[in-house]
């Protein structure tokens, strides 16, 4: 039986609302409005290579990388604890881990504003014990903290789900053969958890590198990230051509890194030799 027409509304919808808008972005990124009408140009892309913009790009990647590494370092042990057999109420522990994710992302970021603020709780505590108050909010560290706080579950959950599927017998066999716990981790647990690690890395790095909310609220607009740059171009400067070019660059970088990551994933799944 053919039910082809059932997908037509969807195909038309996606053509109109996904494909055409992206083509428009591409179109804006390679054209410029002159007196004689539209002209083809690659000027916008060249402009991105100017030092100030390259600095923004490097800063975005750098902060996102630091956040990803911190998430991995903090999250991997947590995923192991959640997947392990040490605690009885594991379901509740996992649920407790998920609940903050259900709260609005902006509110989670806002919560840190109240903590880090000049007259916020941390500074009040510091002055209470006689220490000078610190400038915590509107710093680069605050931005990284916001990213780690918001995206930590994205790292923990994929690793947890891979770890909890590992066959216990593999570990038992290794124990029987005399491996110590460090060797078991190095030779069995960690290699088997790599698919979870790669998807965790992607799920933290991508939103971190494209965010403009965290940097705006916790960085106070001083630490322009690539997302802020795009937002500015479209909403305040009104330079759609340059904004589109930056978006295209960002999109290509992200699709490429996704491709690399998924390829890496497949090698591990399909190979199985190493």
């Amino acid at each position: 039986m053919k039910k082809k027409w059932l997908s037509y509304p969807y195909i038309i919808w996606m053509l109109f609302f996904i494909l055409i808008p992206l083509i428009l972005v591409f179109f804006y990124s390679i054209t410029i409005r002159t007196d004689e009408g539209l002209a083809f140009t690659l000027k916008q892309y060249k402009r991105f290579l100017e030092p100030i913009y390259i600095k923004v790009f490097i800063r975005s990647v750098y902060l996102a990388l630091i956040s990803t590494v911190l998430c991995l370092l903090l999250g991997y042990p947590m995923a192991m604890i959640l997947a392990g057999r040490d605690f009885k109420k594991k379901n509740i522990m996992v649920l407790l881990f998920v609940i903050p994710m259900w709260m609005n992302f902006l509110l989670r970021t806002y919560a840190w504003m109240t903590l880090l603020e000049r007259r916020g709780l941390i500074n009040t505590f510091l002055s209470f014990i006689g220490l000078p108050s610190l400038n915590l909010l509107y710093t680069q560290e605050a931005v990284v903290l916001g990213m780690v706080y918001n995206f930590l579950p994205f790292m923990v959950l994929p690793i947890y789900s891979v770890l909890s599927k590992i066959d216990r017998q593999l570990i038992e066999a290794a124990e029987d053969l005399g491996a110590n716990s460090f060797t078991i981790f190095r030779k069995i647990i960690f290699p088997l958890s790599l698919p979870g690690v790669t998807s965790g890395i992607t799920m933290v790095f991508l939103p971190a590198v494209t965010t403009f909310v965290i940097s705006r609220l916790l960085g106070g607009g001083q630490f322009t990230l690539i997302g802020n740059l795009i937002e500015q171009q479209f909403l305040y400067v009104g330079d759609w051509n340059f904004g589109s070019a930056i978006s295209m660059i960002m999109m290509i970088v992200i699709l490429l890194s996704m491709g690399v990551m998924s390829r890496y994933d497949k090698e591990h799944e399909g190979g199985g030799l190493w």
Binding site: P21, L24, F234, S244
Partner: peptide
């Protein structure tokens, strides 16, 4: 799904 939200958002705004 894989495209950054900001790109989806502004491409729709352009449309």
């Amino acid at each position: 799904v894989v495209n950054p939200d900001i790109v989806t958002g502004l491409s729709l705004m352009i449309l």
